[in-house]
């Protein structure tokens, strides 16, 4: 039963992954990617990693919902109504990907993998929790810092006009230098008088 589920889900996952780059519609590509992630999470669940498998599924569902919005915003061909070519260097890319797959698959098959150590009876989720709060706490601390840096730099990159654009380098320019005067800051001087 597990073997059937593994076979179906892994083949489906790779097929959905290939679909991502074959459909013309960007919305369809995003949902194909979501299908690939969910199907790839099933083998993880089969290994008994309930927490990580569910985490992958939940995170990917949210991420793809956000992604589909960005896809529709930025893609040349959001709805796929107009057939167009969106790849460059297709031949070389295909060859490189195929070679990498063959090398990795052969390596995975012929390598004499060591056989598993003693399986502990503890719940893997609990073991993971104790691990990241103990021996691997440094990893989690760095992850936290990286995520924080990502939040700050993503906002800095994505914002159109920050406060230094509006209030000058020393933040003292009043009213703010906005292209269109308005809002609470700009109107006071001269506009509406009671």
């Amino acid at each position: 039963m597990d073997a059937i589920a593994f076979g179906v889900c892994s083949v489906g996952s790779i097929a959905a992954g290939i679909t991502v780059f074959r459909v013309a519609s960007m919305a369809r590509a995003t949902f194909a990617l979501l299908a690939s992630f969910v199907l790839a999470a099933v083998p993880i669940l089969l290994l008994g990693l309930t927490y990580l498998g569910v985490l992958v599924i939940l995170m990917m569902v949210m991420e793809m919902m956000i992604m589909v919005v960005f896809m529709l915003m930025y893609m040349m061909n959001p709805a796929g109504l107009m057939p167009m070519k969106m790849v460059h260097n297709n031949r070389v890319s295909t060859i490189v990907a195929a070679v990498v797959f063959v090398v990795l698959a052969v390596g995975a098959t012929v390598t004499p993998w060591p056989h598993g150590g003693r399986r502990s009876n503890a719940d893997p989720t609990k073991a993971l929790g104790l691990d990241v709060m103990g021996p691997h706490m440094l990893v989690m601390v760095i992850i936290g810092l990286v995520l924080f840096a990502t939040m700050v730099s993503a906002i800095v990159l994505a914002s159109a006009r920050g406060r230094y654009d509006r209030y000058g380098d020393d933040l003292r320019v009043r009213p703010p230098q906005d292209p269109v005067q308005g809002g609470l800051g700009g109107r006071r001087r001269g506009g509406l008088q009671r």
Partner: peptide, 29 residues
């Protein structure tokens, strides 16, 4: 189920992703 099947699945996902990131023109793709 054995380890090499899982690793082949992982290799397949990696290779498909590698094809995508080498061949696509759009940044989001």
């Amino acid at each position: 189920m054995i380890l090499s099947l899982y690793l082949i699945l992982a290799a397949g996902l990696f290779a498909v992703g590698l094809y995508g990131l080498l061949s696509q023109q759009s940044i989001v793709m």
